[in-house]
Design a protein around this nucleic acid. Structure first.
Lengths: 361, 361
DNA sequence: ATTGTTTGCTTAAACGATTAAGCAATTTGC
DNA sequence: GCAAATTGCTTAATCGTTTAAGCAAACAAT
């Protein structure tokens, strides 16, 4: 028998509960249940619009919830459901336009699906990266989307993520051996784009300041450079190819070495924009005409490439799309948790933005 | 009576539990308890090194925990303890050197104390900021450290944080009316630093491209500019003072307006580096000699100020120290949760980095 | 009239860790 | 030698939510 509750009684119970709350804690579904004289279970179901709860009750629950300023305790539901609705994101640095933009797009997609993201930065340090992974796993994230630090060669910590049975998605800086989803651009093809462009500008002796070979993306860029040079039957000289940490300083260093050569290059393709900036500084300090004496192309399309003078040609990696694909891939994986992860690459096309540093007319 | 367990029995139970785990879930303290034939409570206490648990048991527990690859369920302990050990951080953008560096330092300090941080970006959008706050509160963070979006004037959402009874700490972009802790630099004094410097370089007609007055920091910079100009008895002309969104584009726009004046300034102080960059571009396009014809000073010491040519003088905000102080303030607040929050400002001194754009010799 | 189905809830057991309270057994103090 | 203190655990409740199972009451079908 349902006892009809008149408004007066309801109001009384409401004010009583409110009083309790003032000197106690936050509202729980139990409080709402007490006010309406129903069970907490019914409240929980009403909140989720369960079809077995009457429209009247649902409305009443929502009404009281609002009045009591009810905020669901995420920890409790996460514990019960075995799902935190949190996704960890690990990037080398947030203060790069590329990563910041990737993150923004991941966030946009995942927020819509009820996920929140936890961003951590490794600062290119392997140790920090391990700490980040531990912290994320400790927080019970439902998955991890990561781009590896330059230093990282030991994959044990990433295997640890896999052993937890949660999806791991890599982007930009990935690793084939991990056998997980990967989203990135076609680095090999990007190198071809750059060499084609430089050749079309009349360059005949093209140097490459590359990243470390052990990182896959840089290895691909180097392979692309080598093959494209071969394709055009240009000189492929050891003294024209460097491995670099791709910092501004190292860009300066390697450019200085190139300038010291007897037979200087007439174009330099740098695998990172920061190093390209360092190279640009050295060229300017030495009064080299850019691009007529030496043309310059960077990689990453960092905003400053359009700010410096001359502006630097660079590869746009479509960070937005990478972020979106990473998020979508995670969502797919989460929907089918039983399927074992396999190496699954999504390779996007990159785009060369030609600016003054390589525009010879 | 304690039944002595021989190694064989223990090993048997261990392998049995391991088998269970293979097709089930993660190790819990209950599993460990079963292996050692003690209660889960004892396991929990052993993990925390409770003095009432014998050294033998503690060692045994840790040993089994390692063997079973036990990882504590953070959600469960957080729920029970009413503490998530998560701190939310809200910034307008992560891809600025200032914010990225602040975040890094917050993280460093808080990680040491067992906290993890959740970074969210508002993209200078008020709506996004509100969403971020909701998301963080939903995740049951133990506190929020934030820098407000340019757009934000309505403080209801920040009041909401306060009503949760968790610490709220603001940095850089704050608001007096909220009555919470604030960490920032002395913007008023920074303007004085800049004007003193420009005066010492011989400048006599100094313009200011400022931020929006409704944002406190920009208001302080404007006030500092006005007072310093008055102090040196320089012309304080309406046409020399602008409010701006401080983007590159707006910097260009405002600089063009200054150049259109009959009586041009001989120095421009821009309240943000990006806008200063825009101003620089316009000056160069008009073949104005920097700094001889017009000197330029920015604000924020973004890395590109040292990259462009001429390099731009700017104010270093000591982002690291701001981050550290914000984190430490949070830790203090968390330790004394009963004390009501009050307006408590920590104002750090800023430093002017003089570069080519204002170095007249 | 009898059985079956649907509706609208309740009950109670989880999720995994923590902790107040309690209870033997052992040690210490005098 | 006996009370008091200490040691080393156990028991059971708790955090707030979800959910499987169940149970009346109402309605529908035959």
């Amino acid at each position: 028998m349902i006892i009809p509750i008149n408004t007066l009684v309801l109001l009384k119970r409401l004010s009583k509960t409110i009083k309790k709350l003032v000197n106690k804690k936050r509202t729980t579904i139990k409080d709402i249940a007490n006010v309406l004289n129903i069970s907490p279970a019914a409240v929980s179901k009403a909140m989720h619009g369960d079809s077995r709860i009457s429209a009247k009750t649902i409305e009443a629950v929502k009404d009281v919830a609002k009045k009591l300023n009810y905020q669901p305790n995420h920890l409790a539901s996460a514990l019960r459901k075995g799902k935190s609705n949190l996704v960890g994101v690990i990037v080398p640095k947030t203060n790069s336009n590329f990563f910041s933009s990737v993150i923004q797009n991941i966030e946009e997609i995942l927020n819509k699906e009820g996920y929140n993201i936890i961003i951590t930065q490794s600062n290119e340090s392997f140790k920090k990266e391990c700490n980040n992974i531990d912290a994320l796993l400790f927080t019970q994230v439902d998955g991890i989307i990561a781009s590896m630090a330059n230093e990282t060669v030991d994959l044990d910590y990433y295997e640890k993520i896999k052993s937890y049975g949660i999806p791991l998605i890599l982007f930009d800086r990935g690793e084939n051996n991990l056998n997980v989803d990967y989203i990135g651009i076609d680095d090999y093809q990007s190198s071809h784009l750059i060499i084609e462009h430089l050749v079309s500008q009349g360059c005949k002796r093209i140097a490459h300041i590359g990243g470390f070979k052990h990182t896959r993306i840089y290895n691909n860029r180097i392979r692309g450079y080598v093959d494209a040079i071969k394709k055009h039957k240009l000189p492929l000289d050891d003294e024209l190819l460097f491995e670099s940490s791709l910092t501004i300083e190292d860009g300066r260093e390697k450019m200085s070495q190139l300038l010291a050569l007897k037979n200087r290059p007439d174009a330099v393709y740098v695998a990172g924009d920061y190093a390209a900036l360092g190279a640009l500084q050295v060229l300017k300090e030495n009064n080299i005409n850019i691009p007529k004496d030496i043309a310059l192309v960077g990689f990453g399309n960092e905003p400053f490439t359009a700010m410096v003078s001359p502006t630097i040609s660079s590869i746009n990696q479509h960070s937005g799309e990478i972020g979106r694909q990473a998020a979508l891939t995670f969502l797919e994986r989460v929907k089918m948790p039983t399927v074992k992860q396999t190496l699954n690459k999504i390779i996007l096309n990159a785009e060369l933005i030609v600016r003054d540093s390589s525009n010879i007319n």
